[in-house]
Amino acid sequence: MKGRHGNDDLKKAQQDLESALGFPLSEVGAAATPEETAGLAAVLMVLPRYTAPRPSALDTDRLLTVLTSHVSAGDDVALPRTRARARFRQTMAAFPLTASSGWSWLQAVRPQLRVFSPAFWLASALVLLAGSFLLYRPDGDLVPLMLLSPLLAALGVAYAFRNTDRSTFELEATSALPMETITLARLTLVVAYNLLVGLVVLAGTALTISGINLGMLAVSWLATLLFWSGLALFASVRWGPWIGMGLATGLWALELVARFTWPGLFFLGVAQTGLDLGVRVLLLILGAGAIFLAARMKPVRGSEGVA
């Protein structure tokens, strides 16, 4: 009896399979064993589980509007692309900031270039150049440059995170890349650019002020910038971007206050021209070390690091 039931089951499975395929198995010369036939029939049963998204009535209306415009206007109508959104997400997802990714997160910088318009770069350079000229001190004090660079970096980051429009914000919010990584990528762009422009100003300063050693100046300035950038980066990755920015900015403010009120506490002597090569090299090493460590860590995500 049991065997008979088994045969009936197999027969039914074969019928189901052939009905679904739309042809008898003999037509393809398929030498399917009874077990395989039953297995294939079972596969057919799970296929409906793979559901696909359904467009809403609104989606269809929108599509119709696009098509109607296209048909009536010929090929000149620019079709809206949902693929652009997908491409953005996939590009961002291509650069995961993970512990094992090492320096690959730096690649996230490139897609961020589009956030900045050419006017931004031009304005940054002009402000730095004009500011350095206006605050020029014949005694060789580098305070103007030291003050302007972080200020410009802060303004640049603020510009990068300005509220452009809702769709941009939505893209960033839905990006596979954490917002922190986007923050760091933009920060890197702004700092790197200011570094370049600052170097030009530095060279100009060295040329106009006699007795200044350009090499020592560069080391001094680069060391300071690298140290503060590295500290901000490390703190951002370790504890979140807002803590990182706050820590770096706060210490920077303390440094400036100390310069004018308690010179004895002016521990890093950032804005002094009396250069101590040992301190500068130490700052360079610390800054580079902080950046290296930051790149090896997994950053905190928005929910963890940012309220």
């Binding site: 998204p53 467009p55 989606d59 599509l63 696009v66 098509l67 079709l79 692309r81 949902t82 693929r83 959104r85 997908a86």
Partner: peptide, 9 residues
């Protein structure tokens, strides 16, 4: 889905 929607269009 995004690419599929584009290709439907």
């Amino acid at each position: 889905r995004s690419v599929a929607e584009d290709l439907v269009q």
